[in-house]
Design a protein around this nucleic acid. Sequence first.
DNA 1: TGCTGGGCCACAAACGTTTGCAAACAATCG
DNA 2: CGATTGTTTGCAAACGTTTGTGGCCCAGCA
Lengths: 325, 325
Amino acid sequence: MVTTLRDVADAAGVSMATVSRALAGSSVVAAVTRERVQRLAQELDYQPNRAARQLVTGRGQAIGLVVPDLQNAFYASVATGMQRRVRDAGLNAMIADTDEDPERELEVLGQLAMVCDGAVLASSRTSDSALAEVAGRTRVVLVNRVLEGVPAVVGDNADGITQALRHLAALGHTRIGYAGGPPTSWSDARRREGLRAAEAAGIASAEAVVDLGAFRPGSAGGIDAADQALAARVTAVLAFNDQLALGILGRLADRGVPVPERMSVVGFDDVPVARLLAPPLTTVAVPALEMGAAAVDLLLASAPETRVLPVELQVRRSTAEPCPA
Amino acid sequence: MVTTLRDVADAAGVSMATVSRALAGSSVVAAVTRERVQRLAQELDYQPNRAARQLVTGRGQAIGLVVPDLQNAFYASVATGMQRRVRDAGLNAMIADTDEDPERELEVLGQLAMVCDGAVLASSRTSDSALAEVAGRTRVVLVNRVLEGVPAVVGDNADGITQALRHLAALGHTRIGYAGGPPTSWSDARRREGLRAAEAAGIASAEAVVDLGAFRPGSAGGIDAADQALAARVTAVLAFNDQLALGILGRLADRGVPVPERMSVVGFDDVPVARLLAPPLTTVAVPALEMGAAAVDLLLASAPETRVLPVELQVRRSTAEPCPA
DNA sequence: TGCTGGGCCACAAACGTTTGCAAACAATCG
DNA sequence: CGATTGTTTGCAAACGTTTGTGGCCCAGCA
């Protein structure tokens, strides 16, 4: 059987209370006893039963992560960053995937909440009200979304858009398509705002950016997006995220449209494969690993702060001057 | 506060024992009582405390997954497949990433084991003996590795290699490089065996395949692999996995080597991006989602079976006849 | 009426911790 | 030497469930 606190206590000839305190490093127990107990615990390979501990303390020694789709490398990175930090804190990470289904979001969050001390919710798609409600019940930090009173870590969406637009404008593009993400995506809304702000600031000439619509997440949406871009006769397309950009690139290649000669493409996120594509994708780098780690920090510190991380355009070879034709 | 079993019991005017049994659907409690209790539990929004339940039953209502690297889309897919099945079973999934560190593997597994009813271990890198030891202590199913007495689900590595080699040979390649994965990888060992078996079976002419070496996981290893392939003057390279193939493709593009004209590349796994690359990658499709799901099935059924899933070469455009030059 | 037996339910123990409180002991001081 | 303080330890309750065991009640039968 597995060794329990009682076993260690018996072996050490002290009470379970003393063992508990000794292992917690409490200074109230004599140093000599503490060390003896710790050594014994080591020898017996004692592992505290987390269920029992959680039952009495209420803390679960684990924190959860909810992402819409692990297949999206961006979320995989957030997960990795989060998980590293969680491990460093001596806790466990529970990762759940909602399959892009907003319904499931609250459901899995509820499941996790019972086992976890807190959860980080990435790219939440549920309504503000529902979100506020669960945030009131369980400790939550948001990634890629802000909501009054809930800690969050986000990338600087507007700045990313500005950088991308400035780059495209500098190349001479005057008709730029924006391929949007899910309508309920907070990030998408922010990026659209950034688009309008950039236009207003004169970064791109007025009327320069055309809305290509909202596309399904996953690279499949890229097929539609690419077709829309072609139909709209834009010379550049700015994609909601890299996954979509990937799909666009693929579709463009299928239709024989050379990138960047006849169409410039810029993504958002800078997932690891972006630089391995042909052509390597120009994209706005979002520090996904840092975001995951920062979210954990906020959760552990219970700081109701919203931290915005800088993003930076990576100019690669999927963008060029528009073809004069 | 959160409603507990006692609250429901008080509300229903019965004992906690009856409530517990009623909610479990036990036929020993009268139908009318059972329904009343269930209705009341619903109204009070009763959620059983999993920690308490686990403490007494020993079962944790969760199953774990250990992967070397979530950033590798293959593992992300395994995770997704696993997670879906776990959710369908009404359980939670805990996913842990070892960062490719074999040391951490047992460590995180130990952590998970305390909270989970079982774990699926993907691409385990630890020694047979250590693995057998933990398998004896906690319920484990392996993915991409087989070990006597431990249930497992694997892809048909040898067949995949055979298909790839046959394809390359049919195209006329007579000098094919194999870019290997981590030396402790069970899959890599199996694929190398497949290579030798295929040679022996005369699928590729003898001496046709040259060992390019073992490369670091992650696409960074692809740089070395591509350089080795070029140095070895092979006309085609078969990569341990798609991640490596991606890196190879990237490096080849950087060095101005056209694919597939001067170098054919074939991967293994068929990660989602493979078909979006330029050129789309010829690769051996491994049913990662199914593998994740199957692993959960095996775990839940506690069937000591080892299930081998078929793989299938996807011929795309990264392979062609060797350049006559 | 008295017994038996089945149907339904309650009692209470157990799971492995943490932690408030009190006890034991030693040391210091008056 | 007694009282007081301070240090170290043990006792026991509590966390919220599940489940074995036993009790109660009522129906049916002799």
